[in-house]
Simulated assay, not measured.
Amino acid sequence: MLKLVKIGLLFFGNSQLLIQGFISSATKTFTIVNKCDETVWPGISSNAGVVPVEPTGFALQKGESKAIHAPPSWGGRLWGRTHCSKDSNGNFTCATGDCGSGKMECAGAGATPPATLAKFTIGRDGMDFFYVSLVGGYNLPMLVSPTGGGSGRNCSSVGCTVDLKVACPSELKVTSSDGEVVACKSSCVAFGRKEDCCRGEYGSRDTCKPSFYSQVFKTACPRASSYTYDNETSTFACAGADYQIIFCPTSTTNKKSKGEQQNPTAPQFNTDMVYEGVDTAGHSSYAPRQPTNIGATISMVAAVIVVIILAVVGGGYAIRIGNINILNGSCNQH
């Protein structure tokens, strides 16, 4: 009898180890890191029909990190909220990325644009697909990095690490009550035009082309999705990886963005720029039309200056373009 008890306990113990090992290998760990100089309130929204992750919202002080475990075949998005507080009635709201729940947890609601989004589709045919989207605009620098030995021909870091608020066109800026630029809208969010949002007669890859504003985003952040059909150069895939999501990954990306201090001579952008598409090597390109007057020429020079400003402010600026066509972005943040 004693021998049978020992065998039973041994079997039970090994079973526990097997179950723990299965659970560990089946889940994905997302480690969210705040390297900004201020508090960030991450929000998480799961796709319909998948097991949601918990919590759906929390606070990360400067330098803090938090691990979130997602079930297999999970899909959803993650973003950072800024300038959050409670009003006299206890309602929780944020100046950027607010999910409208009135609480710190988003409870399934998505981000109100503009907000930098990290989007994931986990476990599709053994692969994880992910990208960082600026389709609805930008509020924080973000980097998504595979960890834990993931593999894949384009299993690498993706995101937008420069501060787009510094050179955001005035018509796209979102400012706080004290004049600080807290976010930069996309042209779809700012103007709502069908050609910017890829709707109606512009609702296909053939008819919806990048706008000048999306090209400004793409030039600054070539590894982020800049408009609805921008996926050849912005979607990445890994197998067997966990992920680290870093807000403000470089030390120079969280400077206060007050128009008069950071960008005293905001340039006028060249609206005569024409997108030429993606070549067979997967590289996006654009070329200016011939300027018709001196003013247009000045605008072209100013646009180049914008790129230089972003390169200096962002630090470690490098244009690296991949080659994959799997997922599309969307101007709808929810």
Rank of each mutant, 00 (worst) to 15 (best):
C208D: 11
R205H: 09
C184T: 04
V189R: 08
C188V: 05
A183I: 05
G192R: 01
K185S: 14
D196G: 05
V189T: 14
R199E: 15
C208L: 02
E180A: 12
C188N: 02
A183N: 08
G179S: 07
K185Q: 15
V189G: 03
G200V: 10
C197W: 00
R205F: 13
C197H: 02
K185I: 05
T207G: 06
V182F: 01
F191S: 11
C184W: 04
F191H: 14
G192Q: 02
K185Y: 07
A190F: 01
C198F: 03
S204L: 04
F191Q: 12
V181Y: 05
C198P: 05
A183R: 02
D206S: 15
S186R: 00
C188A: 13
G192W: 06
R199G: 08
S186M: 00
F191Y: 15
C208N: 06
G203K: 11
G192Y: 04
E201V: 09
K185D: 12
E195C: 07
A183T: 04
S204R: 04
S186T: 08
R205M: 13
A190E: 01
V181G: 13
K194R: 09
R199W: 08
A183S: 10
D196P: 04
V181Q: 09
S204V: 06
Y202L: 11
D206K: 14
G192E: 11
V181A: 14
R193W: 10
G192H: 05
Y202W: 13
A190D: 02
T207Q: 13
D206E: 15
C198K: 00
R193N: 11
E180Y: 03
S186H: 03
E201A: 12
C184K: 10
V182Y: 00
G200Y: 09
D206H: 11
D206Q: 13
E195A: 07
R205Y: 14
E201N: 11
V189L: 10
R199V: 05
C208R: 03
C197S: 10
C208M: 06
S186V: 08
G200R: 02
V189E: 15
A183G: 13
E195R: 09
V189K: 10
C197M: 07
A190H: 01
R193A: 11
K185G: 00
R205V: 09
T207E: 15
A183F: 04
G179V: 09
E201F: 06
C197P: 01
E180W: 03
F191W: 10
C197G: 02
